[in-house]
Simulated assay, not measured.
Amino acid sequence: MDQHGNSAKRALITGTSGFTGHYLTQELQQHGWEVWGLGQTPKSESQAGPDYYVQADLNDYATLQAAVHQAAPHAVFHLAAIAFVGHGSPADFYQVNVGGSRNLLQALAGLPIAPQSVLLASSANVYGNAAEGQLAESTPIHPANDYAVSKAAMEMMASLWMDKLPLVVTRPFNYTGVGQSADFLIPKIVSHFRRRASQIELGNLQVWRDFSDVRDVVRAYRMLAEKQVTGTVVNVGSQALHSLQDVLDTCARLTSHQMEVQVNPAFVRANEVKTLCADTSRLESLVGARTLIPLEQTLQWMLS
């Protein structure tokens, strides 16, 4: 029994009300974890979610420290971040993604009993547009926007805590699922097909990317924590490449709806890398072989 009188393993998730946090909460609960959520806003009573919820701002150290002590977690999943690359204020990326993450690590390092696993969600965006093809964790990082720079900076800052906390840093490639904001590409395409729009504006259709199902991503996160993988950086992806044209063709086939695609030059990124794919051999070596949900199944789920 622990100080809360419980025997279940306790997970603390930051950003629990976000897209990924929602699915990670479900994944952990289904595997016998007690989930504590941490977020800035009061928990809405209507939403199913974590077993317990603590309200704290990552940039308010005193309340964050109190919340972390209250949860006394066995595992921490740090998902809270400003993630939309087109977000208005660049300074926010640094304040939340670097400063807030540092506050969290400092609070965790001060716990009477250290967690057994602290997973920090970074992003494959840190690789930038310099390298092509299948990228391993050893690929030099080359972040190309403020979001990616903030994640790279978070990784570098976290290295200062490697000797104090059992850290694992994940670099997820693109992933999607029901409930992801239409600011992101695949939900945007899916929403156009769902409302049977006559046309859609996109950028370059001949870019090939590694897309995962959010449910596979959170399963990888749970397995890394349960195996107490620490002191390393791990790519999370599918190793399967799909072009945007593939995604459009699959949605058209699943919905029997055709849409005119207009290429908007504003959406075409200069010198965009043609193929970006995760090398996930390190992940497999750590958690074992994974059976992944094919992209078509993910799209079917989102379209329905």
Rank of each mutant, 00 (worst) to 15 (best):
I141L: 09
H142A: 15
P143Y: 11
P143I: 11
A144K: 07
A144N: 13
N145I: 07
N145R: 13
D146Y: 11
D146W: 04
D146L: 06
A148Q: 08
A148V: 03
A148Y: 05
V149C: 12
V149W: 12
K151Y: 00
K151N: 06
A152S: 09
E155C: 05
M156K: 15
M156Q: 15
M156E: 09
M156W: 08
M157Y: 11
M157H: 11
A158W: 01
A158R: 03
A158L: 00
A158F: 02
S159Y: 10
S159E: 12
S159D: 13
D163V: 08
D163H: 13
D163E: 11
D163S: 14
P166Q: 09
P166S: 01
L167H: 01
L167C: 05
L167A: 05
V168D: 07
T170L: 09
R171I: 07
F173S: 15
N174A: 14
G177D: 06
G177M: 00
G177P: 08
G177Y: 01
G177L: 03
V178A: 13
G179A: 14
Q180P: 03
A182L: 02
D183T: 10
D183F: 00
F184P: 02
L185D: 02
I186H: 04
P187T: 15
K188N: 14
I189M: 01
I189F: 00
V190P: 01
V190L: 06
V190Q: 03
H192C: 04
H192L: 04
H192R: 04
F193T: 10
F193Q: 03
F193E: 04
R195D: 09
R195E: 13
S198W: 00
Q199G: 03
Q199M: 02
E201G: 15
L202T: 07
G203L: 12
N204R: 15
N204T: 03
L205V: 04
Q206I: 00
V207W: 01
V207R: 10
V207A: 07
W208H: 04
R209K: 08
R209E: 02
F211G: 01
F211T: 06
D213A: 11
D213E: 07
V214G: 08
V214L: 12
V214A: 12
D216H: 09
D216L: 06
D216W: 07
D216V: 13
A220W: 10
Y221M: 15
Y221L: 15
R222D: 08
R222T: 10
M223S: 14
L224I: 14
L224M: 10
A225C: 12
